[in-house]
């Protein structure tokens, strides 16, 4: 028996919004420690890794490990039927071929349930090696989304250059060149507005804008985003999900032909 309950459907809606542009379907691996999802996007350029800890749920029960392959378009249709403040419960029997998603209004006066067919996706998890990153940048998630959106107008690629002075995002195309520099913030009243750079070595890497923009669909989940970079390895873009877990996106760099 698997049962997981969240106080607000809005969190699940935001999580789905954060992955459904990259993935058509994905396997949710459930164990007593929580829910894990790992999947490459269709073009195998990026990888999404979602971790939801069992202690972040209002109720969590998972008697046997369970892999639930879900069509994310179908899941989006179901979540559209929930009000943001509804409780949401996901339930499945062991070895089931369906999952039930139930919404309850705060006053319990409206209860709806949706049964969704599961898919056998047969996905294998990739092993992600530990990396000592050269640069780790923490910045407001909204600012990162704004920069990715703005620079996508100028080029398919964005160059991220991180030094101890700050982080620079650049794009160059037919229109010309765009550069956006962010300095590390000195002192800020609000932690969520800070730009913090931890640098071991300066690093310059090139990434495809369309994937960065897809990752920023996670912005509503978190006030801050963390970018971890190292020469010739994938960028890690991480959004914390408060009291519940995190979503990480890995993006392969572009290199000189």
């Amino acid at each position: 028996m698997f049962e997981a309950r969240l106080g607000q459907a809005t969190i699940l809606k935001k999580i789905l919004d954060a992955i459904k542009d990259l993935l058509n379907e994905a396997t949710f691996d459930c164990s007593d420690s929580g829910i894990q999802l790992q999947a490459m996007d269709n073009s195998h350029v990026s990888l999404v890794s979602l971790t939801l800890r069992s202690d972040g749920f209002d109720k969590f029960r998972c008697d046997r490990n369970l892999s639930m392959g879900m069509n994310l378009g179908s899941m989006a249709k179901i979540l559209k039927c929930a009000n943001n403040e509804d409780n949401v419960t996901m339930k499945a029997q062991d070895n089931a071929d369906t999952v039930t998603i139930m919404f309850e209004s705060a006053n319990q006066e409206k209860v709806s349930d949706y049964e969704m067919k599961l898919m056998n996706l047969d996905q294998e998890h990739l092993g992600i090696p530990e990396t000592d990153f050269s640069c780790v940048v923490r910045m407001p998630a909204m600012e990162f989304a704004r920069i990715c959106r703005d620079l996508a107008q100028f080029s398919e690629s964005v160059v991220i250059c991180c030094t101890k002075e700050g982080v620079k995002f650049s794009a160059s195309g037919d229109v010309g060149t765009a550069n956006i520099k962010l300095a590390q913030t000195g002192s800020v009243d609000k932690e969520e507005e800070a730009v913090i750079i931890e640098m071991q070595e300066p690093v310059t890497l090139t990434f495809a804008c369309r994937y960065l923009n897809a990752f920023t669909k996670a912005t509503p989940l978190s006030t801050q985003v963390q970018l971890s970079m190292c020469a010739d390895v994938p960028l890690v873009v991480e959004y914390a999900i408060k009291d519940l877990g995190h979503i990480r996106y890995y993006l392969a760099p572009k290199i000189e032909d």
Partner: peptide, 14 residues
């Protein structure tokens, strides 16, 4: 022009 690498070349298959 730059060449886009695939993500799986950085990770290990089980």
């Amino acid at each position: 022009t730059k060449f886009q690498l695939g993500i799986s070349m950085f990770f290990t298959w089980p």
